[in-house]
Design a protein around this nucleic acid. Structure first.
Lengths: 141, 141
DNA sequence: AATAAGGTTTCCAGTAACTGGAAGGTCAAG
DNA sequence: CTTGACCTTCCAGTTACTGGAAACCTTATT
């Protein structure tokens, strides 16, 4: 199948598919006219990539995951380890964003949001101490 | 003050400070020897940038925020609008990550994590239907 | 004065993961 | 034969920096 068909069946843009080839994640055959030729295994691999990327795995993690997938003798523990590491990273990211949210929500809450120039948000960012300044989002609760 | 002093007082790396100048966020004077010369207002501006970036505002949002900060007649509503938009974006990001987390945690939970090659995580990524596959993290709960 | 250390300058390249666009070849339909 | 949809390659741009090289400036020490 041509790249357009592969794109249609996997839901990945053609640009992305070519990019994945460029970085060595997939190596489709070529037709006589130079067009890329994807077989079912290729399409399958692309779907794998799409799903893994959608779950937030980095392209490098996907590379590892694919090689484990290719290796029929791999231990599931190896896969689980990668997934767990990723899970932890997600948790940390969520915590970070929550902290950010708290601080910013606090600031927004205190801002009049009217026509007057007086703005606690800018005051805080400026750190002038005009308003009771938040201590930085790490510590804000 | 030299760029090194500015870096020390603001906590920003010199590289970053030069970069901010390159993209027009700050324009320090120059000494006779060609060294950048930061006054208190410059340092203040840099601190503003550091704090705003730390709160997750994009560089472009920082640019807007700074121009509002420079405009003593601005309406606090304008600032509040930017902050609220950012707050919403943060909330969406958190939700997305939570959804990701649910799906992945489910997968990890089902994986034996032993020496055997049997791995529900890879099965799911491959979409072979070997395991009771999750429906994609959007719908997974 | 020479030298060494440390700070500064500019410019170039690289990061992650694509995305957009240009210039041109291919294929099927009308 | 031409149109339009597809495909090819290559180059540039995105975000927000970061690292490194080569060279200049300043200060202190020998």
């Amino acid at each position: 199948m041509n790249i357009g068909d592969a794109a249609a069946t996997t839901g990945l843009p053609t640009k992305t598919i070519r990019y994945y080839e460029e970085i060595g994640l997939i190596s489709p055959a070529r037709q006589e006219n130079g067009y890329r030729d994807y077989d079912d295994a290729d399409a399958h691999r692309l779907s794998f990539l799409k799903r893994a990327r959608g779950l937030g795995f980095s392209v490098d993690e996907c590379r590892t995951l694919l090689s484990l997938y290719d290796d029929s003798g791999r231990a599931s523990a190896d896969v689980k380890a990668i997934a767990k590491r990723h899970l932890t990273a997600i948790e940390e990211k969520i915590e970070e964003l929550r902290s950010l949210h708290r601080t910013l929500a606090h600031l927004v809450h205190r801002c009049g949001g009217d026509d007057r120039p007086d703005c606690p948000i800018l005051d805080d960012l400026a750190g002038t101490g005009k308003s009771d300044q938040a201590e930085g989002h790490q510590k804000c609760d």
